[in-house]
Amino acid sequence: MASAVLTLGCSPDRIDLPVELNGNEGAPHPAVVVLSPPDRSGVVVESGGSDVAIPCGTCHATRDPNLATRSSEELDQFHSGLEYAHGDLSCLSCHDHDDPAELRLADGRSLPARRSIELCAQCHGPQYRDYSAGSHGGGSGYWDKRQGSLVRNHCLHCHDPHAPSFPAMQPTFKPKDRFLDAPSHESPDKDSAKKENHG
């Protein structure tokens, strides 16, 4: 079976975001840069030993999305095997019916895929507020905006939009203090055996 999964590859490009983050007047660098979200503008198929990205339009130019689809079991072909766990939403709650490569807001307006944070924000207001304030999503680089930029994650770095809950992780580095009982080797939970990495 030609396995087809949505890619979450991380691109080093940085994008502008519509979120208003701390001002940084007169500095040679932006106060905050947000890493561009992983490229999701299609499906990746393994073909002849290498990954080939197939844009959404390739199929959906001719094949009309099914409005009623609400579970991943109903999907076939390139979407089969998609792990889906995101509330009670249907595909077209977020995907634009007319242009499957783009997104659709709740009020029906189309939204470019690269502005997906706004789509998430429709429902996840507190998280969006916290993210905008810098209390969600983490960061690296500079805390001092006078000296450099704080580099932020995009929602999609941590949350797969189809199964957004943060994956379980296995701790890999435990204290080895003298006379402290060594970590007990408990078997990992079965239901938390999800991959640590999205990719």
Binding site: P171, P175, A182, S184, E186, S187, D189, S192
Partner: peptide, 10 residues
């Protein structure tokens, strides 16, 4: 407990 060693979070 600091010595837990299983998939997290529980």
């Amino acid at each position: 407990n600091t010595t837990y060693n299983h998939a997290v979070p529980l």
